[in-house]
Design a binder for these strands. Structure first.
Length: 763
DNA sequence: GGTTAGGGTTCG
């Protein structure tokens, strides 16, 4: 194939890509060829091969502009800037450049074996350029090595100058309301000049990076390189050295406010050398501190300095410090906990972590440490960690705050009651009798009062070194008229940070929170049974909202009502004081609602067979997805699909050991709608959502009987942005088929549902 | 390239 033809194809419109060419060699349904450095994908059709896709595998990548003399000064002078608003298809943009700030960066998606695609949105700031807002942000599609380099180098907030691009019509303009064109970057000429956002922390200086020149070509990240970091064992530390270390946490304190400008974390780590080394971390921002949940966690620290203090070596963070924490559970997840934007995590790191986990599991390192205890197992006169959900909180006085928490289990001991004013409570001031019996009142003192100020009801917490005290003495807020209850268990979080005393917010994805949710779910299921036996007044208490009756007349009941604002606005307290049977106009903020788990109040409705089914809750869905990820079985992709692997960006890919794959319809590809529909296999719910943000239609699939199949119909069969579309378990016959979008401008849920023989019941 | 803290239970 002549090089000129391919060059034309690369720059040309979609129609030109359908040129027929003679079949060369053995061709299956798809074949890949390399012609003068250009990868072409051919699809057989009637003894001829049709070019499906072809990309130049260029090596040049993203240029990072040097700091200094002002933005844009190093962009080559032969390039003239063109306002984004003036871009239109089929125009020659040689020697032109478009400038914009990255406002969205999609994941790097691998299609076939050698091609990569990344979608990003850039925004043009300068007001002088255009008054048309829609034309101020544009989708940019980057192919090949440039996409890979972009994925590693560029982040939202960075400023780009783009050249060597072509301009095509945007297939998503109706949906995303962005510029009607796309910027397409592939081939030799495509070039990106990058000005890293000032807000972004600088990356560590690589010894490989060249210095002194105004333009620094980014490293070619596909080539294996020497390990970026070396780690020093804890028995080989030398005073005053700046080192990188790995260690198992044997002691830690949550960050606390120092007398200086920073928060201070104190921890002690060990490794196979059995040396225990204390570490002190000073950082102004809490998020830059080690995110340690429990002893046994593994930390990796870069750029800590060895100091000698009291004849012991200690580590203190120094310039360019970064830390990442992992669970210490053998065989556990590798989700990195870090604020670092440029996390590097390779096979060596994973091996080091697994080795430390395996080693620590055989050591008696953690035997003396207080483990987390559920409320059902709390013993009087002990210190323990409590993993719980905050339901409500109330300030008692300047040195004491009440946290009302639960973990779904019930403490066998009678618990201290603390009476506070309902209007001083954040969160619900009362609960059903059943739930109340599962709630622990935790009194936190002194420095923990300040931290508690930031906590919101609903948050998941780990409270460290909580003390269970029987026969409580007088409690602040208790008036003399209230009897002291001698045999009740009180929970105190004393002031100070001894023994790591403190509170930590747990993220939703932590295994502890997932376990907590299971316990709460079990509680709620049990409560549902009880509610059905409750009488009316108890129901009122549970639902907190009076039934829709006024003077015995049924009030019009709709999901949404409009207020005509004819009545005078009154306060809730005025309503409470007024006689019944009146209509009021109030404006109020929702303090709480029941049922807390809204998915219980919403149902999916099938318009074909009128079946009603529950909306699955997130945890159940996450379980279905992770189950499908865990059991990778061999699966032949359908003959109509072009298959490849997905590289998820940053942390996500680093933390997953699975290998997600993507299947694209070759038919859609030839119709120029490649990205309109992707079939995704082996991704977690979170990853699927992530990709759904970048691609208009994402169908999760799983192997079944050696073939590609839809997932269990409990799960959505289609993600469209944040919308989820479900099949009907009763009447949908789910199957994966190649969709046809001939003559259709845009792929939508209806079209997909029809081709999947799956009815949309709700979204 | 400068401070902070430098684990080891409150005293409610």
């Amino acid at each position: 194939m002549p090089h000129e033809l391919i060059s034309r194809l690369l720059r040309g419109n979609a129609k030109e890509k359908k040129i027929l060419c003679p079949l060369e060699g053995s061709v299956g349904s798809l074949v890949r060829m390399r012609v003068r450095g250009i990868f072409c994908l051919f699809e057989t059709r009637g003894g001829k091969a049709v070019i499906s896709c072809c990309r130049h595998h260029n090596i040049m990548t993203v240029y990072v502009l040097s700091d200094g003399s002002g933005p844009g000064s190093q962009v080559p002078s032969h390039l003239t800037r063109i306002p984004m608003a003036l871009l239109c298809p089929n125009t020659n943009y040689n020697n032109k450049t478009v400038k914009g700030e990255v406002i969205h960066k999609g994941p790097l998606v691998r299609v076939a074996t050698d091609d990569l695609i990344l979608k990003t949105i850039i925004h043009e700031e300068d007001a002088m350029q255009s008054v048309d807002c829609q034309r101020m942000s544009i989708n940019m599609v980057i192919f090949g090595a440039l996409a890979e380099s972009f994925s590693h180098r560029v982040n939202p907030g960075d400023i780009l100058w783009v050249s060597g691009f072509t301009v095509g019509k945007s297939p998503t303009v109706n949906k995303d309301k962005l510029h009607p064109c796309n910027l397409l970057l592939s081939g030799d000429d495509a070039c990106i000049y990058l000005q890293v956002s000032k807000q972004r922390p600088p990356e560590p200086r690589s010894p490989l990076a060249s210095r002194g020149s105004s333009l620094t070509p980014a490293e070619d990240l596909r080539t294996p390189r020497a390990p970026r970091y070396t780690y020093v064992r804890l028995d080989e530390l030398k005073n005053m050295a700046v080192v990188n270390v790995y260690g198992v946490v044997v002691f830690f304190k949550q960050p606390f406010k120092s007398r200086g400008t920073d928060y201070c974390s104190s921890l002690k780590i060990t490794d196979q050398s059995e040396h225990k080394i204390g570490c002190t971390i000073f950082c102004e921002k809490l998020e830059d501190h080690p995110r340690i949940f429990q002893t046994g966690d593994i930390v990796r620290m870069h750029r800590v300095k060895v100091h000698l203090y009291n004849n012991s070596l200690t580590l203190v963070n120094t310039f360019g410090f970064s830390v990442v924490t992992f669970s210490g559970a053998v065989g556990g997840g590798m989700e990195p906990r870090t604020s670092s934007k440029s996390l590097q995590l390779d096979e060596d790191d994973r091996r080091t972590i697994e080795e430390l986990r395996a080693w620590a599991a055989c050591q008696a390192l953690l035997s003396s440490v207080s483990a987390a205890v559920p409320l059902s197992a709390v013993q009087p006169n002990t210190y323990f960690d409590l993993i719980c959900q905050l339901l409500a909180k109330a300030s008692i006085d300047s040195t004491c705050t009440l946290l009302r928490v639960w973990d779904g289990t019930r403490c066998p001991h009678a618990l201290l009651k603390v009476i506070v004013e309902p209007n001083s409570t954040e969160g619900p001031s009362s609960f059903s009798k059943h739930k109340e019996s599962h709630i622990a009142n935790v009194l936190v003192y002194d420095n923990h009062v300040e931290f508690s100020r930031h906590l919101k009801p609903g948050a998941f917490l780990r409270i460290y070194n909580l003390r269970a005290i029987p026969g409580s003495s007088r409690v602040p807020g208790l008036t003399s008229s209230q009897p002291v209850e001698p045999d009740h268990l009180a929970f105190h979080l004393h002031g100070g940070t001894s023994y790591g005393r403190g509170i930590r917010l747990l993220p939703e994805n932590s295994p502890d929170v997932q376990e907590l949710r299971r316990a709460m779910e079990a509680f709620l299921d049990h409560q549902d049974e009880e509610v059905s036996e409750l009488n009316d007044s108890e129901l009122l208490e549970v639902w907190s909202t009076p039934p829709e009756f006024i003077d015995g007349d049924v009030v019009d009941c709709r999901t949404e009502r409009c207020c005509d604002h004819q009545l005078q606005l009154v306060t809730l307290s005025q309503v409470k004081q007024s006689a019944g049977g009146q209509t009021h106009h109030v404006r109020a903020q929702i303090g709480s609602y029941e049922p807390r788990r809204l998915h219980r109040a919403l149902k999916l409705f099938c318009c074909s067979c009128s079946a009603i089914q529950d909306v699955p809750d997130e945890e159940l869905l996450a379980g279905i997805f992770s189950e499908a990820t865990r059991c990778p079985t061999a699966c032949a992709p359908p003959p109509w699909a072009l298959s490849g692997h997905v590289d998820l960006p940053g942390d996500a890919s680093a933390s997953q050991q699975h290998s997600p794959s993507v299947h694209l319809s070759t038919k859609l590809m030839t119709e120029g709608k490649t990205e309109q529909l992707i079939f995704l296999m082996g991704c977690s719910l979170e990853e699927t959502q992530h990709l759904a943000a970048a691609y208009p239609n994402v169908v999760p699939v799983a192997p079944s009987g050696g073939r590609l199949a839809l997932m269990d119909l409990t799960a959505p069969f289609l993600f469209r942005g944040t919308d989820r579309h479900y099949g009907c378990k009763r009447c949908s016959e789910a199957a994966v088929r190649e969709p046809s979008a001939a003559g259709v401008e845009q792929v939508d849920e209806k079209m997909i549902a029809e081709s999947e023989t799956c009815c949309t019941s709700c979204s």
